[in-house]
Design a binder for these strands. Structure first.
Lengths: 169, 169
DNA sequence: GGGTCCTTACTCGGATATATCATGTCCGAGTTTTTGAGG
DNA sequence: CCTCAAAAACTCGGACATGATATATCCGAGTAAGGACCC
């Protein structure tokens, strides 16, 4: 039961991208610098988010990442699944069928109840993550920062590093 | 987001110990053979369960494992935490505090909202596991095996391998 | 025959190698910008 | 001065080392059972 550190980086990065004004962009290098993490490693996870159609990329100089859809339509679950993979944490190896005197497969048509219980728990976990949108997360973070110090630092960094989608011509 | 295979082995082993008659014992070797897994590896997890006071051990020849308390008082959560460790899956590294222009620690007195959301989900996960007792699991497994083939195989194996707690004198 | 002691064999417990996956890094393909020349 | 084209630089994307953790294993300490011996 362990989540990789990449999940935290991914969520923070998506949250930061969510506060950009319309058409704003940030490069992977800027996101990595702001969070103090390895650029190459963060890039790996940003690519996973991009492959999952959560982020859109703009190539070339002055390029970068932006959200692929409104922050209201991106949930924490989307991010976690994109980074960690869609497989459930508990994978039943069906060891009840192993051992001596193996019974015919027909005896195990009913699903393993242990597996079922574990998956029920995981379903609850995912439901809780699905209920939290990135937009909601941004509101909570802003409310918790009531003296505005964190927001000021973020804005200063954005002013120095923000980019814009090329004007379509 | 991945659980080790030891969890499945541990749950199956505890479930098997739960169907023993009063005072019954099973050795780690017998449990490993029945489930078709590495004895040494299963032993490792049984020791973890023993350290968590879920299982009691009887040393010496004709020794083995038994439940340390009634099956109604052992939950899936107990087993998972004993095997995987008590730390939550998501561990906030506080990367919001890192990066350039680090703010004073006083600015981050409020907990990280992202961490809070992840922990909420994990709390739901654990609550679901805590709601399932081993006794309940045994009932479900028995109900799912309506033609009795699985139970017969289990009983045959038990008759050949069961032991008993030494009569206290 | 009964009791006591000793040997023995089996158990769990912890320390030790190996495999696998997450972490961290690198180089290459692609695209936009920029810059220069030409008209 | 404007247009066009070519080169360059910066971006993301995927393939490649490294380290930590889970997996698998082995050997040692401890204990109850079984047997032999003595009373």
């Amino acid at each position: 039961m362990k989540l990789g550190d990449g999940v935290e980086q991914a969520v923070h990065s998506v949250t930061m991208l969510a506060v950009l004004p319309e058409g704003g962009l940030l490069s992977a290098a800027a996101l990595a610098e702001f969070h103090g993490v390895s650029p190459s490693y963060l890039l790996k996870h940003l690519q996973a988010l991009s492959a999952a159609n959560l982020l859109a990329t703009v190539p070339g100089p002055k390029g970068g990442y932006r959200l692929a859809r409104p922050a209201e339509d991106i949930t924490l679950l989307d991010i976690v699944l994109a980074v960690e993979g869609p497989e459930p944490a508990f994978r039943c190896k069906e060891i009840r069928q192993k051992g001596p005197n193996p019974l015919p497969k027909s005896a195990f048509q009913r699903p393993c109840q242990i597996n079922a219980a574990m998956l029920r728990a995981e379903r609850a976990y995912r439901a809780e993550l699905r209920a939290v949108t990135v937009a909601q997360l941004v509101r909570e973070v802003e409310e918790a920062d009531h003296d505005g110090a964190i927001a000021r630092r973020g804005c200063a960094f954005l002013d120095a590093n923000i980019r814009h989608t090329p004007t379509s011509r």
